[in-house]
Design a binder for these strands. Structure first.
Lengths: 228, 228
DNA sequence: GATCGTATGACATTTATATGACATTTTAAT
DNA sequence: ATTAAAATGTCATATAAATGTCATACGATC
């Protein structure tokens, strides 16, 4: 599950540079040369994060950010602003319209990737590759392995993604619909009740290391991973 | 809290078929036989989602979609286009004018309902996520947990919502019908006296941490959450 | 003490979740 | 290509929890 990074930048060389960088960092770059172009891409599939140039022909970056923030569908997508100069005023305005971070050109690839990672970790931790440990339960996104109290646990892909998501967002209730969106994907059409079945499968597997209590039912609301 | 689904379809048998389906799926169907007719209905009450036939007499579906998108009031209403053929070009044009999804005839009831659900679940409004604390009583909307003096308190969904509402609006009296509106929902037909029962249930639970006095009866008026 | 509004316990019903089974689809191996 | 194995989504049923209503008891107010 590579994160989709939408880059909105009108200068083609910079755009390509960014895209190269991003794909090397393990993300999936999407290119847009204007706000209008970006909107089209967003209509097809919501990106996980947006890199947005401050200066754009047509709709400016800051107006576009505002627009994104005013739409329910896009308001939670993290935005990193790209600005030419390190102007404090720009920074303030950027944060005002809801940018999550911002970076001034020229920037080092390392810094850019670090910031993307930081923002993702905050907003969509399930898209990072961090090793997750909770109460003796370990999930390694890189090797794609799970173990409970050092005992390897075998599970299907869906259960893995479900557990990955829960471990990335512990102590938080998710409705079945939210889980379908986050774990299955928003373009998928399956029954709410199917979530129950996968929860049960996951719990069954976690039983091997007495971790099944981690996945809790919150009646009327959904499910939660919690150590309490 | 049934979602209102506006169906715009000129062929009466198909319209009825759709309406039947939609009401069986737990939504409330509104019927329109033309774009003009649909506009009238929209003026009366904004639907939650619109199923829009591609081919319509008078204003075409695509023009109507464009019109809806250009109006502030209606631009955020999700639209699902109904098209006769699976023409890629149509799909592109549909997405261009801002349809959220589209489905080709003939379609299975299941697929249709799944798509409606998928589109609706994405536009769910977000509730406030702030941790509420009053006098040692804590309610966390995120993890969906309540504790009194650090002791976990278990309660049913209705009691949770009731307490959530009171803690969000402390020191203020609400009549039984106001509570029914705010906590149960406005279209629900329930006896006033039932509120009493849930108040008692809530108080019983709060007794575990000596917080039952927080919920006060205001004779002749209703109930209030107050620390005084 | 009569009246009115509220509290309480019991109960039938409704609603939500858990579970086991199954048909199909996907994936991997040969 | 063929086959076997694994995974997936759905359904029917079982189980559990929550809900709304009522009858009755209680307490305040006049």
């Amino acid at each position: 599950m590579k994160a989709n990074v939408l880059i909105v930048e009108d200068e083609s060389p910079i755009l390509e540079l960014l895209a190269l960088n991003i794909s090397q960092a393990g993300y999936n770059p999407l290119r847009a040369i204007s706000a209008e172009h970006a909107e089209k891409l967003i209509n097809e599939a919501l990106p996980d994060i947006i890199l947005l140039d401050w200066m754009l022909p047509g709709m400016s970056g800051i107006d576009f950010a505002k627009k994104l923030r005013s739409n329910t569908l896009t308001k939670t997508i993290p935005i990193i602003m790209l600005t030419a100069r390190s102007d404090e005023l720009d920074k303030v305005r950027g944060l005002e319209v809801g940018a999550d971070d911002y970076i001034t050109k020229p920037f080092s690839p390392r810094e850019l990737n670090a910031r993307i990672k930081a923002v993702l970790r905050r907003k969509a931790p399930e898209l990072t590759e961090d090793l997750l440990k909770i109460n003796g339960l370990e999930l390694d996104p890189v090797s794609h392995r799970v173990s409970g109290n050092n005992k390897p646990l075998e599970m299907g892909p869906t259960e893995f993604r479900l557990l990955h998501f829960f471990m990335s967002n512990p102590e938080r209730v998710y409705s079945r619909s939210q889980l379908l969106d986050k774990v299955w994907g928003s373009q998928i059409f399956i029954e709410d009740r199917t979530v129950d079945v996968h929860i049960r499968r996951l719990r069954n597997i976690l039983t091997q290391s007495q971790h099944e209590g981690l996945i809790q039912t919150v009646r009327g609301s959904g499910y939660r991973l919690s150590t309490k």
